[in-house]
Design a protein around this nucleic acid. Structure first.
Length: 668
DNA sequence: AATCGTCTGCTTTTT
DNA sequence: GCAGACGATT
């Protein structure tokens, strides 16, 4: 094992790292150093003589993949680390499909549709298919289509129903658009590997050692994909925690991890239970809660860091008091405990709960940042530019074409567009091809014809430039933006100058990222677009909002993160567990959600609940969450917010209050 | 083509 | 209570 030491690993972690052959299940509880184990294991494999190209680590998010890559680079030499594949499931699928998708009847320049594109297409199909009196919610249709794909339901639903018809047409339409949605990336890759032994064997040879992160979140297709890739040597190591499975509603199958032995016989099973994050008061609270879940692999987190303070369960009059209490306390503790703002996090079940907290923090001039909300890639201007790129690279991509055909306005009216799509449907050609069609053009006014010609000319010229070898492609995109006057149009369409600046900034940001991309890759606009389409991540990593502040975050988004001081709010029946979980039979998953929330805390934790809450525009009475009864009395303490807010002034406390008040005044 | 008004319906959101 | 969607109106 030359050149590599098993730095500071505990015995279980070391076993996980040293077990290199055959199936391996690493049950990694919250805060037990799972990323460290994965990266150390990759490093160990390479130190043992495995070629770095042979190692594949699959994650769910780009963030996780990047983090691992960076960590690995600190363990082994950079050129070696670079050869290891660390990517998301979806990115891996794109790589596989870009090579061999032709075997499935798609073209290699296929476009990737995100949820917005998908919705647009489904809406179009519904209006095209529905009779006058029929109605179908597009998001219902979208969810069903996704579910069907993930369950590999080959038999389509009743074709007679509108839903069935839309379902069938959707798939056919995507294929003629030469496009795939996120689900297709997995479906088609699995199909390719199933039906084409040569391709399968090639990828099996390529990756001799597989690792899968967050295995509790894999769905059926992802499991199938892993099985296919692992088939030959079965060197598959998965890391996960069934207790943190909170994405069942998105198709994740906890059974993948619960029944791992059925999928990969005779694995070595390693349990990581030593937690490096929290106090034992916090861990024992979490441990006790989760034992109420019936289907799980028993685990007991423990820490060498001592008991710590008891977990506080604080009851409030209402959500107003809850927000006030939290803002006040954070302001005080920042001073008295010499804490930084970013040491505090407020966790909640629903985004709507953030609003009141936000207001109260703002009143006290406490800096904060909200994680979640709208994605960078959901912004209109970003979508527009990516649609331009996609339309240039894949002329069959009608969805992107239609998005930009009159953006900025260039005299192509909805009526004209409607005619073009009708022609394309009748002649079974792309909308772009329809634009040059004689039958179509004969229906137009001279004016409209001129606009159409200018548009065709525009796309043709830029397409030619893109296909010219050795061009700097981001220059092409830049010229395109200038040529169509995109920025001017963007500014004009904004209500406020602020908004205009914000949107312009997004465009600049996108271009900046493209420039960076061209610096590190030779894949050009195609590669850049792929990467962009597979990055739905929130904008918290761009430089502007990086700074400090109290974090406001949903329980889902908080998974994997940690904070010294956590406030988990709205622990009420109906909120957590959410009302809907009862009818859906997913209360266990809600319990895991609370478990995830509790285990985010490093040193202190407060759970709060209100006797009444403003909900959907009216005050509704609330009761404490039934989960609170499941917590261990010896590690928790119950309080009323009123007691704490109006606590009798003690000497120390009054000093604290005074200091906090002064600090606040200083911020003003 | 754009803007205004009213209706609805409402968790969570890795790609 | 509020956002987002859709339809009517200028």
């Amino acid at each position: 094992m030359a050149g590599f030491r098993l730095f500071d690993l505990n015995p279980e972690q070391e076993t996980a790292v040293r077990t290199t052959e055959g199936p391996l299940l690493i049950l990694a509880g919250a805060g037990t150093g799972k990323t460290r184990v994965i990266t150390a294991r990759a490093a160990f494999l390479i130190a043992e003589g495995v070629a770095p190209e042979q190692v594949l680590a699959v994650t769910f998010t780009n963030k996780a993949a990047n983090e691992m890559r960076e960590r690995l680079a600190t363990l082994i030499e950079k050129p070696q680390a670079k050869k290891v594949t660390m990517c998301t499931f979806h990115a891996l699928c794109v790589r596989i499909l870009r090579q061999d998708i032709e075997k499935l009847g798609y073209k290699r320049n296929f476009s990737i549709y995100d949820e917005g594109d998908q919705m647009g297409l489904i809406k179009k199909l519904i209006t095209r298919t529905a009779a006058k009196d029929e109605k179908l919610d597009p998001s219902v249709a979208k969810n069903l289509i996704s579910k069907a794909k993930n369950h590999a339901w080959n038999a389509p639903p009743d074709e007679q129903t509108l839903l069935g018809a839309v379902y069938l047409r959707y798939q056919a339409e995507l294929k003629t658009l030469n496009a795939v949605d996120f689900d297709d990336l997995l479906v088609l890759t699995v199909k390719l590997l199933t039906e084409h032994a040569d391709v399968r064997e090639r990828w099996q040879r390529r990756f001799g050692y597989l690792m899968v992160d967050e295995f509790q979140d894999t769905n059926r297709l992802q499991l199938e994909l892993v099985s296919h890739l692992a088939d030959a040597r079965n060197n598959v190591a998965v890391v996960g925690d069934d207790d943190q499975s909170i994405y069942g509603w998105r198709g994740a199958e906890v059974s993948n991890i619960l029944e791992f032995e059925a999928h990969f016989p005779n694995p070595v099973v390693v349990k990581l239970e030593q937690n490096y994050r929290s106090t034992n008061a916090i861990l024992n609270t979490a441990n006790k809660l989760i034992t109420n879940n019936p289907r799980r692999r028993p685990k007991q987190l423990w820490s060498a860091q001592g008991d710590g303070a008891k977990v506080r369960i604080v009851q409030m009059l209402d959500d107003r008091q809850e927000a006030e209490f939290i803002a006040n306390e954070i302001a005080t503790r920042q001073v008295t405990e010499h804490a930084k703002w970013e040491d505090f996090a407020v966790l909640f079940r629903m985004n709507a709960q953030a609003r009141l907290i936000e207001t109260n923090l703002r009143q006290l001039k406490i800096p904060y940042r909200i994680i979640g909300g709208k994605s960078f890639f959901d912004r209109r201007e970003v979508k527009d530019l990516l649609a331009y790129a996609s339309a240039l690279l894949n002329t069959d991509d009608d969805v992107s074409l239609l998005r930009i055909i009159n953006t900025p306005a260039r005299g192509i009216s909805p009526a004209t567009v409607e005619r073009a799509t009708a022609i394309s449907a009748r002649k079974k050609c792309s909308v772009f091809a329809a634009l040059s069609d004689e039958d179509f053009r004969s229906e137009l006014t001279p004016r409209a014809t001129a606009s159409i010609d200018a548009f065709i000319e525009l796309l043709d010229s830029f397409e030619t430039r893109l296909n010219t070898p050795l061009t700097v492609q981001n220059g092409v995109l830049r010229d395109l933006i200038a040529k169509v006057g995109y920025l001017e149009d963007l500014r004009r369409s904004c209500k406020t100058p602020e908004e205009g600046l914000q949107r312009e900034h997004s465009v600049m940001e996108l271009m900046k990222q493209f420039t960076e991309y061209e610096g590190r890759s030779a894949e050009g606009l195609r590669g850049f677009l792929d990467e962009m389409m597979l990055r739905n991540e929130r904008q918290d990593d761009d430089d502007e909002l990086k700074g400090d502040g109290v974090t406001l975050i949903t329980l889902h988004a908080a998974k994997g993160l940690e904070y010294p001081h956590v406030y988990l709010i709205g622990v009420e029946e109906g909120v957590l567990p959410h009302d809907r979980s009862k009818v859906e039979g997913t209360v266990d998953e809600e319990r895991r959600l609370l478990y995830v929330g509790i285990t985010r805390a490093q040193t202190t934790l407060a759970l709060t609940w209100c006797h009444s809450r403003f909900k959907y525009g009216s005050v509704t009475p609330c009761t404490a969450s039934s989960f609170l009864k499941e917590l261990p009395p010896e590690w928790t303490e119950h309080r009323h917010a009123g007691q704490i807010l109006n606590a009798p002034v003690e000497h120390a406390a009054s000093g604290d209050r005074f200091a906090a008040m002064k600090a606040m005044l200083d911020r003003l």
